[in-house]
Simulated assay, not measured.
Amino acid sequence: MRKRLKDLHSAEPDEADYLPELVELGVMIGSYRTALGINQEEMAKMIGVSRRTMTKIENGRQTLSLVIFFRIAALFEVRPVYLLQELERVTQRKWGRRWSRKGED
């Protein structure tokens, strides 16, 4: 397990390596941002990242730290768990049940 985690963190991702969930999260963030009438540069400043990083987040090419994830949730005035539940709902609808808890297979 440790080797696998090390490989995930040290490898340079290519197009095939991006998690579909990360892409969907980015789309969701972009949709919320647009609905609030905030442009990428404004949101980037609000959460403490560059506009380029904001673009990568919305394209699913940038992982989020918990701090940034919590800042995004606070900006959208939702609980972080709500964003995760919405992500799960969207991904289940799109790809069927992909996530399961231990023992629920």
Score class of each variant (00 low, 15 high):
E104W: 08
Q92H: 08
L8I: 13
N59I: 00
I38R: 00
F69S: 02
L8G: 02
P80Q: 05
A44T: 14
L19F: 01
R4F: 14
G103E: 00
E88H: 08
G60H: 03
I72S: 08
T53D: 12
L19T: 11
T34A: 12
K3S: 07
M43H: 01
L8T: 04
I57S: 05
M54H: 04
E15W: 08
E41Q: 13
V27D: 02
R33T: 13
W95S: 01
N39H: 14
A11N: 10
Y82G: 01
R2D: 07
I38S: 08
L36H: 13
M46D: 12
E24Q: 04
R93S: 03
S31C: 10
R4Q: 11
E104C: 00
V81S: 10
I47M: 00
M1W: 12
S10F: 15
R71Q: 10
V67H: 13
A74K: 15
S50E: 13
Y18M: 03
L36A: 05
G96S: 02
V78M: 13
L22Q: 06
E41Y: 13
P20G: 11
I47C: 01
G26K: 00
P13E: 06
A35L: 09
A35S: 12
W95G: 02
M54S: 13
R101F: 10
F69I: 03
L66G: 14
G37V: 09
M54Y: 06
R4M: 11
P13T: 13
F76W: 01
L22K: 05
L8P: 03
R52I: 14
H9R: 12
S10L: 15
E104P: 04
L5K: 15
R52G: 09
G37I: 05
W95Q: 00
I68L: 08
Q85W: 03
A74S: 14
G30K: 13
I38P: 00
I47P: 03
L83E: 10
E21S: 10
R89P: 04
R79A: 11
M46A: 15
L8D: 07
L75M: 15
N59K: 11
P13S: 10
D17S: 11
L75W: 04
R51P: 05
M28T: 09
F69W: 01
D7V: 12
L75T: 15
E15V: 06
V78Y: 00
F69L: 06
F76Y: 13
A11C: 12
G26C: 09
E42D: 12
L8M: 14
V23H: 04
K45Q: 14
E42L: 09
G37F: 07
V67S: 09
K102P: 06
R93D: 05
V49S: 01
E88A: 07
R4I: 15
V78I: 10
F76P: 09
P80N: 06
V81Q: 07
E21K: 02
I68N: 03
I38G: 05
K6C: 10
R2N: 11
Q62H: 12
R61I: 00
L87N: 01
A73D: 06
E21P: 02
E12F: 04
R98A: 00
K3M: 02
G30E: 07
R71D: 13
F70T: 11
L8K: 09
R98Q: 13
T63W: 05
K102H: 11
L8F: 14
I68H: 00
